[in-house]
């Protein structure tokens, strides 16, 4: 039977619960993204904290922390069939027991490993290519915007919190209209409209210009290789990159 859930992680865990205790899932879809099928009924999985917790605790106890982290990363990804992949992965895990992650060639393990790698790579990329601007506020605030494929905002928080110990910063996922607000060693995520306007602090344009200038100077003419450049830095990321603005 096809499941519909509310798109939350807790909701997804409840789907796992239902798979074991109600009826096996043939597909799991977010509410609103489901094309009603002509055959078969759909089951609306109600998000229930207790059930979610039971699944979570079973995962923690039987499959370990690594699996917990991996599952959550899979949930944050934008893979269209991530829900079923995650379900199969967990079902296989519960059958096989701890250590199942070592079966790298098994399709159910690989299915999630692949998603995890994808989101992890995108995160790693953003650690480098996120560009902060100093904007005016009561005091200087660092502001960065991005449009990631995966919903990875929260995976960026700790890295930058570590770096910017003395400065407040905002990381804005324009696509999903939410942002990390961080200051004084703490952070939270809150909605933020995509068309928010920011006012640049004094000196900001100066350093942007310097950076662009540096960026152009550092390339070796004799080795110009736009294909290689785009390979590492696909065009879709250029919008938010200071050095790529004309």
């Amino acid at each position: 039977m096809d499941y519909l859930y509310d798109g939350t992680y807790m909701g997804l865990l409840c789907c796992v619960y239902a798979h074991y205790y109600v009826e096996k899932a043939t597909g799991i879809f977010r509410e609103g993204e489901y094309q009603t099928s002509l055959f078969g009924k759909v089951y609306r999985v109600k998000t229930d904290e207790d059930k979610a917790r039971r699944v979570y605790e079973a995962m923690e106890k039987k499959l370990g922390e690594f699996t917990l982290r991996r599952s959550y990363l899979a949930y944050l990804s934008n893979f269209p069939d991530k829900e079923m992949r995650l379900l199969r992965y967990l079902v296989f895990g519960f059958k096989q027991g701890r250590g199942f992650n070592n079966m790298h060639g098994h399709p159910d393990v690989f299915g999630v490993q692949e998603i995890e790698k994808r989101i992890y790579n995108e995160r790693h990329r953003y650690l480098g290519i996120l560009r902060f601007s100093v904007i005016k506020g009561n005091r200087d605030v660092l502001y960065a915007s991005l449009e990631p494929d995966n919903d990875l905002l929260e995976l960026l928080a700790d890295h930058f919190l570590e770096r910017y110990q003395a400065e407040p910063f905002i990381i804005h996922d324009v696509k999903r209209e939410k942002a990390i607000f961080a200051a004084g060693g703490d952070w939270y995520i809150a909605p933020l409209a995509k068309d928010v306007t920011v006012q640049l602090a004094q000196g900001e344009e100066f350093y942007r210009a310097l950076w662009k200038h540096y960026f152009e100077s550092i390339a070796i003419k004799e080795r110009t290789n736009p294909r290689c450049q785009r390979n590492f830095l696909p065009k879709k990321y250029w919008n938010h990159l200071t050095e790529m603005q004309v």
């Binding site: 790693h124 650690l127 480098g128 290519i129 960026f215 152009e216 550092i218 390339a219 070796i220 003419k221 080795r223 110009t224 290789n225 736009p226 294909r227 290689c228 450049q229 390979n231 590492f232 830095l233 990159l241 050095e243």
Partner: peptide
């Protein structure tokens, strides 16, 4: 961490 890639792909 790589922060950008120059025109020579580096």
């Amino acid at each position: 961490i790589c922060h950008s890639w120059a025109a020579d792909g580096r």
